[in-house]
Structure formats: structure tokens, C-alpha cells
Write a protein that binds this DNA or RNA. Structure first.
Lengths: 115, 115
DNA sequence: TTATCATTTCGTTATATGGCGAAACATAAT
DNA sequence: ATTATGTTTCGCCATATAACGAAATGATAA
């Protein structure tokens, strides 16, 4: 159906989801680390991640008590592959995404997440 | 701003706008011809066209008492160029878009638009 | 100039989306 | 087993979006 084809564009239609994808370009991240950078509620971030996952942009794996999210290395949808393969073309770096990436350097999962 | 980068994805997030783009792949069309195929209100189609135009996907030119819309041959945003240059990759043909295109063959602007 | 007609804009309505906190889940640590 | 903790789900609210018809606009035809 045609509505199905709009889904990957919808997934890319939210600034916070673009920030998440760009962050995951750097390294694998758990929900609470992303929450810390975006300054959103955990439930909101979780929802964003599920949308990105459902559209094949990211995948998850367990890591102790955390769940690591990372860029899908083998997307089913070739349009997703194409975007992820040239991510800086589709979502160019800017002050926000750059700041996000530097924020990540100073974040220690073990300190941040235990609140 | 990052929100700006989401705009072209938002523009592609509506099934009717995808149908319009695919129709314009065939030939230049006026508002009422598109209205006839999509079976939507004229005002609705006009709004969709303005969104596609504002994001550089299509351009317009006068043709008598009509306004012809067509695929932008020289988009400013290189992401738009990339999508329009491989349109069948990003929006593959299906039963709906194929039917739309055949519908267009039998539509005579001079008959349809004068109601 | 006046009438006609394609198109756009405006106001309204229904649905979709993104945000939150609380509660439910799932699993690791004690 | 029980507690603690990371994550998800649920219910709610505010805003965004897409739809319509009516009115406004603008340009062509009479």
C-alpha cells in the first residue's frame, strides 16, 4: 500500500528522531543515555526508538541490564540502507547534532542511569 | 535548524502527495486534473501542491487560465534532486499509482475542469 | 467592464502525533 | 525470594495535520 511507503519518511519527520540517529552514528546507546542528551521523558525516547526500530533504521541488543540501540547494519528496506549509507548527506551535521555528540563523550551510563 | 531538515521528509509523509508526484512524472497537470484523479476537494489538492512546491519538489507555470504543475528540473536541495532523480526507487510503482497514471490518459482538462 | 472560472485562502472539524507521568514489565543485583 | 533498576506500555493533554465547504483572489474570456 502507498501509505506503507510514507512510513520511513514519517519516521524521519521528527527532529528528535534525527538527533537519535545521528547520535547512534557515534556509538551504541541505551535509552537513558539518549534521554539524558535530549532532555525528554524516558517514555518519550522509548517511543521514538520503537518507531525507528519498526522502520528498520535501528536494532537492539541486550547488554547486562541495559538495552543497546545501534544503527541497523543490514536493513531490509533498500531505501533505509541508502539513507543510512549516506547519513551525512541526508541529515547534515549542525550545531545541535555536533553538541549532542560531544555531550555523549562525557556521559557515563553507570552514573547517569541510576536515579 | 534541525527541524528544517525534517521538512522534506514531512512533505513525503502523505500518500496523496506521493500520488501527485508520481502523476507529475507522466506529464504537467493542473489542479483540477489532479483533483479529478485523487477525488479530493480542490482546496485540499491546492494545499498539497503548495507543500510540494515550498519544499522544491515541483514548480508551476501559467498555461492560459490554468496553472501547470510539474516536477522541478533544478531543485535547490540536493536531497530533493536525489529523490526526484531516482523516483521509482524511493516511491515504487504500485496498483494505485499505476491506476492514477492510466486515469490521466482519459482526462481532458477542457471537459473536467468546467463544472 | 463585466462575467467566468481556475485556484488560493480561511474557518472549522476530525484524526494523528509528540509530550508527560504513573503503572506495568523484565531482568539484574542483593 | 526480594529489591532495585532499565525499559515499555497506558492514559491523558496540547499541538499539528489533512480534510471539507465557503469566501476571496486573480486572470482570462465575453
Amino acid at each position: 500500500m502507498l501509505k506503507e511507503k510514507t512510513k520511513i519518511f514519517k519516521a524521519l519527520s521528527d527532529p528528535n528522531r534525527l538527533r537519535i540517529i545521528k547520535m547512534l552514528q557515534t556509538k551504541k546507546l541505551c535509552v537513558c543515555e539518549i534521554t539524558e542528551v535530549l532532555q525528554l521523558a524516558t517514555s518519550t525516547v522509548s517511543k521514538h526508538l520503537s518507531i525507528l526500530r519498526d522502520n528498520g533504521f535501528i536494532v537492539e541488543e541486550k547488554d547486562g541490564k541495559w538495552i543497546n540501540y545501534y544503527i541497523n547494519p543490514t536493513p531490509f528496506d533498500e531505501r533505509v540502507s541508502s539513507i543510512l549509507g549516506s547519513l551525512d548527506f541526508w541529515i547534515s551535521d549542525d550545531s545541535v547534532t555536533n553538541k549532542d555528540k560531544t555531550s555523549l563523550i562525557n556521559i557515563d551510563r553507570k552514573i547517569i542511569c541510576c536515579k
